[in-house]
Every structure is written in structure tokens, then in C-alpha cells.
Write a protein that binds this DNA or RNA. Structure first.
Lengths: 257, 257
DNA sequence: GGGCGCGAGTTAGAGGCTATCACTCGCGTT
DNA sequence: AACGCGAGTGATAGCCTCTAACTCGCGCCC
């Protein structure tokens, strides 16, 4: 199916013209698929409609994707990859860089939102600056294409199990989060849940973060997902509050203690 | 379920036999729909398959539901209704009641989980007991049928707008949450976000809760949704941690300060 | 008690979708 | 120059939603 070497996403070097064309068509199909998904959701994605848009006849697309599920899986993979890159880039970004372009597949807004993170003039408070940058990058990435976010964190299809390379990216995201979590002062007593985490840390196997940091990464993940997914789903719409400030407040409460 | 008066889900009194039969068939269709949804997700819901299961031929169901979307909307309405009832009932439950049966449509697990809420022997800490009961009832309701939870809080369909009677139920849920939020000690200074909420409280219009309580209800909602939705979607599956304890820890952190 | 209206259920069918199969045709390699 | 392989085609099966025209029988009204 895919070219030589790894059967992953993009081709490697020394592409033959055939392979070149092939991956180009695959990319265009995925682009149309993203458009369709943004305007009608994942369930409305139609291979047929995409083919017609591209001036081809229905079954032609089966040369490029084995099935509709296969296309959706590819989209999920790209979404995970883009999110992991976005998070990693936000973590790695120092203070000087203007953040540049080319983050994953979506790009768009949210690139400069990480500027106003922690300008608190204290030296010790800078330890949470990477987390703040990640938080704003995450929200920017999500707002740029909500359906893409929901492809990662939205309603699961009961039967579906993601292939291993996708779960590997999910692990990578958690690893970056752990990297960004500052080690807390060691003298604070561990909470009961932290002692539980000390014994149940398969997901952080091989990572040196102490239990308190695991707890922090977990809170960061679950709490930001809570506000963000409700915002993206429109549940704050008629309420009159400013989602921006709600997110900022949640982030504040997360970084302060 | 919902008694007479409102023209919502069930029929009113003095039903003619025709109407009786009609609402019975509607109920059976919805039951089969829930089964289908539980095992294959909302996008796999098929009117045709339901009709065949019931020994009828396809188009017959259009006597009972105007379209597939209409059926799904009815399911969404029932889900909201059941959630609102569950939350309300958990809030209203005193200490003596054994919780009984007949909570909404799902019932099932989580009914007795609210017992171990706040046994801290302090008198002032009991103020958070209703919130704890609601939290456990919410999780029980969600675990009993994850797809039902996702019908309320999962991936939204871009074009879809819920009818007004459904948003009314959503408001009712928020109102119950506000009822359950204890008023904080008035001497604490307001956070910036709380002052924002003081001016942007359309969603709590007519409710006497102070801004700090609004903030608390909002946090309760977003944070519990964060852990719960990630658990239901299976994102903790390979991680080795106990979702039960994670939820309890999140709830603890929510009620303590 | 008898006639009739209304609603439940049927079949036929249009149009859309996924997916398979057999086929043609042209580019790039040998 | 010839050939193989892969891109694209139309035909087809089977599923779906939803409409239209029709039949049949229960229950209401006179």
C-alpha cells in the first residue's frame, strides 16, 4: 500500500514520481475531508463526495484509502501528531522565539496566545511558564478546528481501537506534559491519591517525575480538557460569560497551588 | 418519567387506546435505539434495523418519528431529562433515604456510591455534602451508559441546534448545581474572574447565588466533566491508574478549598 | 347497529452511501 | 520497443433515509 520503508504518514527520501503523485493525492483527499468534517462532523464524511469534488469517480479513492474508516484513522493520526507537535513546540519555546509557522496540519490562530503567560517578575514562578505556554497553545490548536480536537478527545466509537502508532503519540503527549511539570517542594506531605499514583504509574514508566508531578500533569490534562471541551461544544454559548477568562481562571487555579 | 402537564415525553392522562399504543411503540423504538447506540455509537443508529427488530417494515417508523434526526433529538431530550432528574434527586436526598429506585431512565450502578461522602464529623463541612452526592450520582449515571452521557456532553454536530425545551433542561441542571453550592465566607476577597462573573451571569439570572458560588458551580461542572469524559472515552485505559480514585481526588480538591 | 374516518402498516421506488470487481489505458522502466 | 503495474472507469450489490400511493381494520358518531 504505502511506499517503501515505514508505512507511516509521509514518504521518505528518493520518492519516485509515482509515489510523489500518490502522496499528493492522499494529502488533497485528507484536506477535503477536513473541510467536510469542519462543516458537518465526522459522521457526515463521504468518500463519494470527496471524489466528486476532486473530479474523480467514487471508487477511485479506494486506491488511496482502504476504507472510510481507514481515512478517518489517518485523520485521527494527523490530529494526534499535530497536537503532540504543538504541545512539544510550546514546551520547547523559550522566551525569544516568535513561534514561527508550520505547526502540524492546522496552524491558524492561537500561535501568539502564549505570549502573555507568566510575566510575574518572580524567579520561582517561572517554573510554571512552560505549562502556561502549553495551555494556551492547546487552546489555540483546539479553537482553530474544534472537530479536530473532538477527533482526539470527543465521543469514542464503542468498537473502535486506535492502532498502536496512535497510542504511541498519545504517550508522547503525556511525556511532554510530565517534562513540563515542575517538581514540587519535596517537604510537602503526599496526598492519598499521590501515594496511589506512586504505585500505579505505568503511563509514566521510565519518567523520573515524582508522584506529585504525575498528579499535577494529570490535573492539568483533565481540568483543561474540561473547560476546553465544554467551550468547543458550545455549552457556554448562551451563558454570557467569557470563555477566554474562564480558561484563564482555570489555568490560574491550576498553576498557583 | 415526566408526569402530566408538560407536552414533553410521556402522554397525559385520559389516554385513548390509540394514544396508549402509540406512546408504547415510541418507547420501544427508543429502547432499541439505546441498545444500538450503546453498542455502535450514535452514528450507527439505523431506523431500518430497529423496524426489522420490531417485526415491522422500514417506513412504518416514520409514523412515530419524523426522521432519524427527530429520533436522536428525542433521545437527547430523554438523556437531559434523566440527568437533570438524577442530579436533582441526589441534591434533594437527605441522609436517611436509601436512595431507592427509579432515577431517570438508566438507573443501574452508582446508586449507593454517595454514601461515603462527607463523614468528617465537623458541622461546617456538611455544607459540601450535597455537592458530593451530586458528583457521585453524576458519575454513576454516566458509567451506566457512556453513550448517553456523550449524547449530552460529547462531540457536537456542527449544524445542530437543540430545541428550546432541551436548553431549558440544561438550565435546570445549572440551577440545581447553584442550589447545591454553599455560599462561601463573605470576607474572602473576590478573584478577578469572580468579579467578571458578577457582571456576566445571564445563565444565573434570577438566582440569588453570589459570584463566588457561581464560580464554584462552574468549577464543579467543568472539572468533573474533565475527568469523567476522559474516563468514559477510555483515555485512562492503558495508564494503570484507578479512575475511581482519580475522580475522588478531583472531587476532594474541588470541595476542600 | 351500521357506516365511515383516520391512522397504522404495507410495497414500490428515488437517491445516496460504502465497497467490490472486471476492465481499459498510459506512464515509466527494462 | 515492449511490457508491467498502477491509476481510473463503469457496473453492481447491498445498505441506508425518506416519499408516495395504497390497503386494512379499529373505534367513534349518528
Amino acid at each position: 500500500m504505502a511506499g517503501p520503508g515505514t508505512p507511516g504518514t509521509e514518504s521518505s527520501r528518493t520518492e519516485s514520481p509515482r509515489e510523489r503523485y500518490r502522496s499528493q493525492v492522499r494529502a488533497e483527499v485528507k484536506e477535503r475531508a477536513w473541510e467536510q468534517m469542519a462543516e458537518a462532523g465526522a459522521s457526515a464524511l463521504s468518500l463519494n463526495a470527496i471524489a466528486k469534488q476532486m473530479g474523480m469517480s467514487g471508487p477511485a479513492l479506494y486506491r488511496y484509502f482502504a476504507s472510510r474508516d481507514d481515512l478517518i484513522t489517518a485523520l485521527i493520526r494527523d490530529a494526534y501528531r499535530g497536537l503532540a507537535d504543538t504541545v512539544r513546540l510550546a514546551y520547547g519555546t523559550g522566551e525569544g522565539e516568535p513561534a514561527g509557522s508550520g505547526a502540524g496540519s492546522g496552524g491558524g490562530p492561537g500561535a501568539d496566545a502564549s505570549r502573555e503567560a507568566g510575566r510575574a517578575s518572580r524567579g520561582a514562578e517561572d517554573a510554571t511558564a512552560p505549562l502556561a505556554r502549553i495551555a494556551h497553545a492547546l487552546r489555540g490548536w483546539a479553537l482553530a478546528d474544534p472537530q479536530r480536537y473532538f477527533l482526539v478527545y470527543g465521543t469514542p466509537v464503542p468498537g473502535y481501537h486506535a492502532p498502536e502508532d496512535i497510542t504511541a503519540i498519545a504517550d508522547e503527549i503525556m511525556r511532554t506534559l510530565l517534562d513540563a511539570c515542575p517538581a514540587p517542594p519535596a517537604d510537602r506531605p503526599a496526598t492519598p491519591f499521590e501515594t496511589h499514583l506512586a504505585d500505579h504509574r505505568q503511563w509514566a514508566a521510565g519518567h523520573p517525575a515524582p508522584p506529585a508531578a504525575l498528579r499535577r500533569a494529570l490535573s492539568f490534562w483533565t481540568r483543561l480538557h474540561g473547560v476546553l471541551s465544554l467551550e468547543l461544544a458550545g455549552h457556554f454559548d448562551g451563558m454570557g460569560l467569557d470563555p477566554d477568562r474562564l480558561f484563564a481562571a482555570e489555568l490560574d487555579g491550576l498553576l498557583a497551588p
